[in-house]
């Protein structure tokens, strides 16, 4: 058994976890504090990847990420590289797929924040951006941690979207879940068992951490 798929899954999960706050904070903040009609539409759009089949999402991403698609052609003109069947490509897909898993806990955390703290910050002269990083972020640490860990654990188990966008190129796009699937198809049950046995406790520990963080937040 090779460790490469497990390490690639960990790398993908880690990169997704680090990068997703950049994408998740603005919509989570807007959904929590915004006051306009477009809110429910944005909410539905962001939650969409959570409810549609991963293969459908993967197919949609594949269409836009090919060298002739909107995202793929832009990426290629900027970097000279193809987006599909690359690690960057599966990372992009992972960010889209995980967005609702990051936004929802963040939004819940922002909504729990006493709104008067934001008003107090405004009266004390803070701009909305200063209020965000000096008041909102420090008071929503547990929500941010919960969101990050959920995204990490969820990324470890990604299958359909990654398969559609990245295929199964060993060392490049073949993550653990795909390697397990292929091992089972090739009747290499022992390899599948070892990789599964390595993933389950990791996910379990991460879920325990989420529960602990949520428990702390509730108290």
């Amino acid at each position: 058994m090779t460790l490469e798929p497990l390490l690639l899954s960990a790398k993908l999960a880690f990169c997704t976890m680090v990068l997703i706050p950049l994408l998740a904070f603005p919509p989570a903040y807007f959904l929590a504090f915004g006051k306009c009609r477009g809110k429910s539409i944005l909410d539905a759009l962001i939650t969409l990847p959570m409810v549609i089949p991963p293969t459908v999402l993967g197919f949609g991403l594949l269409v836009v990420m090919t060298p002739t698609g909107a995202v793929g052609s832009t990426w290629q003109s900027l970097t000279g590289d193809r987006l599909i069947f690359s690690f960057t490509g599966i990372l992009f897909a992972s960010l889209v797929f995980n967005l609702p898993f990051a936004v929802q806990p963040l939004r819940a955390s922002f909504e729990k924040l006493d709104k008067r703290l934001l008003e107090s910050a405004a009266v004390l002269g803070l701009s909305p951006f200063q209020t965000f990083y000096r008041v909102v972020l420090p008071n929503c640490v547990s929500g941010i941690v919960a969101s990050s860990i959920l995204v990490f654990a969820h990324s470890l188990g990604e299958f359909g979207v990654i398969l559609m966008v990245g295929g199964s190129i060993p060392g490049k796009t073949q993550v653990a879940s795909i390697a397990i699937f292929e091992a089972v198809e090739a009747l290499r049950y022992e390899d599948a068992l070892y990789m599964s046995a390595a993933l389950v406790p990791v996910c379990f520990v991460f879920l325990l951490i989420i529960n602990a963080v949520n428990g702390r937040q509730r108290s």
């Binding site: 008067r116 703290l117 008003e119 107090s120 009266v123 008071n139």
Partner: peptide, 12 residues
């Protein structure tokens, strides 16, 4: 300067 009814000091 504004002082609210309830305490709105920053808890962190």
């Amino acid at each position: 300067g504004l002082v609210f009814q309830d305490y709105t000091l920053f808890p962190h």
